[in-house]
Design a binder for these strands. Structure first.
Lengths: 246, 246
DNA sequence: CGTGTCCTTGAGTGAACTCAAAAACTGTGG
DNA sequence: CCACAGTTTTTGAGTTCACTCAAGGACACG
């Protein structure tokens, strides 16, 4: 499947909740967005702190994340992104980037000029509302991570993240049967969860010991979904996915 | 100064970045929003998890916060809110609440029906964009807190929060001379920063020992702004306040 | 087949936690 | 104006979860 403008149109429409919700006119306008599709290697920055981007990137294939670097080499990862996500949608209304976006795996992204998106949202308030909503769900995921960082044990935080990612991937049709590709190092996981890579390792061992999951060769397998979810008080409400399953 | 509909109009316009940025027509529409002003006591819930609110609340006086309760009585506070904020603006586009909003001090809020806000944003895309932007800045603050929870020491996290709150209050004209009313208990601070109340207490003592701040009787005083900011790598960029100072 | 990255494990340390109790406030009613 | 109850702050002592440092093993890739 070669990445084409069509591919990105499909992805964009899927992101907006499926063609069913859009009028012909709206779909037409989306199909005519002037996108630039580009393949990227792993661990490549897409936008950087202090940049003033003039476009947004729609992730078509691969994984990306948002992060910030601190003094003494510390890093905080704010979110992981999968195909269909627009990790830097906020740049549409906030000029200056306050964090970085980079690929984790090799990836394919579609760049869409701000101008085109601003025209689109001005012409179609319904699309604006859906995109706005999307950034709000983003905020909900940030809050869930905050709870993990502040009030959950290492085990709970890791379990919670794995549950979240599974449901997000499943909703985009990218995972099923309680398993998925997870192209993250233990260091990445640690920087997302506020843990050291060593402790992530021990935590994974513990979860494996309870026969809840295995993470091996970049593939995560969940053996007991319900038990895993219960172990970390996982409540999927904050992902606000109902729109897709409906 | 009695709370009146006029007061809430002023506050709303101020929130949107000042009258200068709005057309007469836009200001007119805002002035005709059907608001309900209500005084509230301290520690009163405004909206709760799982609610499906039909209005948003604009905070006119006092402090509020967003939070979530976990098993075993744990609590995570996600944000603090000051006059001018609309803590539950997200309910405009996400039906079900995934967290709670409550007052911290006694407060005055103006409730605005969703319907009216949706009409307003549909009629005036510029207002929609400003409100959207506001929720994006919200997200930026969440990220800053994540960094604090994940990668900062207790001292740094506390200092960072105090810097953030000062700039936010100052931008709304509610603080100057490096001091402000902070109606939070040490338990509240702990639940925001992922610390125990005991450790918050020790951390405050440490900061006081360095003559950086005092927090006494609900008033925070910052003695050495620059040193405090440096001690926690505080970079105000993420607050995206430039709009107001310009 | 070597080099770099990532994972794994051990040992010792430290930041923050819990439990507990005393001291200082706050507000209320007598 | 004082007494009192409830909350909040403060301090001490002991514990624990997660960290750092260090080194060996596994794996991936050119």
């Amino acid at each position: 499947m070669a990445p084409t403008p069509n591919h990105s149109t499909d992805m964009f429409i899927r992101k907006l909740g499926g063609a069913a919700r859009l009028s012909d006119e709206e779909r037409e306008a989306i199909a005519h967005l002037p996108v630039t599709v580009r393949p990227l290697g792993p661990h490549q920055d897409i936008v950087r702190e202090k940049d003033r981007p003039s476009q947004c990137c729609l992730l078509l294939e691969g994984w990306a994340c948002r992060y910030q670097l601190l003094s003494e080499g510390k890093r905080q990862i704010f979110s992981f992104h999968i195909p269909g996500d627009i990790p830097d949608l906020q740049s549409l209304h906030i000029r200056v980037m306050d964090h970085n976006v980079c690929t984790l795996s090799s990836a394919v992204v579609a760049f869409i000029p701000h101008e085109a998106l601003l025209d689109l949202t001005a012409a179609f308030p319904a699309i604006a509302a859906i995109l706005w909503r999307d950034t709000l769900v983003d905020g909900a995921v940030f809050r869930a991570w905050m709870t993990g960082l502040g009030r959950r044990t290492a085990c709970e935080a890791v379990a919670h993240l794995f549950c979240e990612l599974y449901l997000k991937l499943q909703a985009m049709g990218l995972a099923r049967d309680y398993a998925y590709r997870l192209p993250l190092t233990q260091l990445d996981l640690g920087d997302a969860l506020g843990l050291s890579n060593v402790h992530v390792n021990r935590t994974l061992r513990e979860l494996r010991g309870k026969d809840l999951i295995t993470l091996h060769g970049g593939t995560l397998e969940i053996y007991k979904w319900q038990e895993l979810a219960d172990s970390c008080d996982f409540d999927p409400a904050y992902l606000h996915l109902e729109r897709r399953t409906a």
